[in-house]
């Protein structure tokens, strides 16, 4: 099925927030094509009546009580951040989504 184009790689990279270079587009297109071609084999065996496995542990309803636990020290956490201001994490301007 696959024949991954540079455009598709570019689309995937956008979805994944990767500013890939032009050169990488070509390399990845080739490699993804090979890899996806190989893994597409999963379609050969798995029939409709086979349930998918998302979790291998046969466990349900793992819940915790609604009891508070200590939070982290704010200054220590913000010290690890690339930028902070006023007790908050500082980020560059966000693309405008509302008009």
């Amino acid at each position: 099925m696959p024949a991954i184009s540079r455009e598709e790689v570019a689309h995937l990279a956008r979805l994944a927030r990767l500013a890939v270079t032009d050169e990488e587009l070509g390399v990845f297109a080739g490699q993804l094509d090979v890899i996806l071609g190989a893994v597409a084999r999963v379609g050969e065996v798995a029939a409709d009546d086979i349930p998918p496995t998302s979790h291998v542990v046969p466990v349900t309803n793992v819940l915790r009580p609604d009891e508070p636990r200590p939070s982290l020290d704010r200054d220590a956490v913000l010290a690890c951040a690339p930028a902070a201001e006023d007790g908050r994490f500082r980020v560059p301007r966000i693309l405008d989504e509302e008009a």
Binding site: V42, I50, P52
Partner: peptide
């Protein structure tokens, strides 16, 4: 890492999920 992120992004995309991720989970059952 980038290669795998892109493969994973592809496999989970709408339109490809069933043929890739969904089928892989069935293989897991088998």
């Amino acid at each position: 890492v980038k290669r795998r992120i892109m493969i994973g992004t592809y496999a989970l995309s709408s339109g490809y999920y069933d043929a890739y991720y969904g089928q892989a989970q069935k293989v897991r059952t088998l």
